[in-house]
């Protein structure tokens, strides 16, 4: 196989061993464990009573804005890592754009937190 002798080869081997190991755990469990199915056992767990609905949408969408913020920070950190890897070749005055960018990353966070607090999440 093309993977060669280096790292990716062992990565692939490790991955395959991991998948096989996980499935092997399951196989041993399916062999050793009893299997007595009944309808009541397979009902999902709801602590007995089903409470009335209502606040569920709020619970689900509570911090969705932070997922979007996470996406953006993930992308920005790509640029920052490229800058960081070449840190030794920049003098501080040359990386002024990166420093100002870092500082300007903070206001969106605070605005989002303030909106979240005012909404009440």
């Amino acid at each position: 196989m093309y993977l060669g002798d280096g790292g990716p080869f062992w990565f692939a081997v490790f991955l395959l061993i991991g998948i096989a190991g996980g499935l092997l755990f399951y196989l041993v469990a399916f062999i050793l464990a009893p299997r007595a199915r009944s309808a009541i056992k397979e009902e999902t767990f709801e602590s007995g009573q089903i409470p009335p609905g209502g606040k569920r949408v709020r619970l689900v969408m509570q911090y969705f804005a932070f997922l979007l913020l996470f996406l953006i920070f993930d992308v920005v950190s790509m640029f920052l890592y490229a800058w960081g890897a070449s840190y030794y070749s920049f003098a501080p005055s040359q990386s002024i754009y990166a420093i100002v960018l870092l500082i300007l990353l903070l206001p969106p966070i605070y605005i989002t937190l303030k909106v979240a607090k005012s909404v009440g999440v």
Binding site: A65, L68, L69, V75, V76, Y97, L101, T112
Partner: peptide, 20 residues
């Protein structure tokens, strides 16, 4: 690069404004 990153953060502002 700096302006591009600012555009991305303005997308964050937009997302928060929409959610609000």
């Amino acid at each position: 690069l700096f302006i591009l990153a600012l555009l991305l953060t303005s997308a964050a502002y937009g997302a928060v404004a929409l959610a609000r």
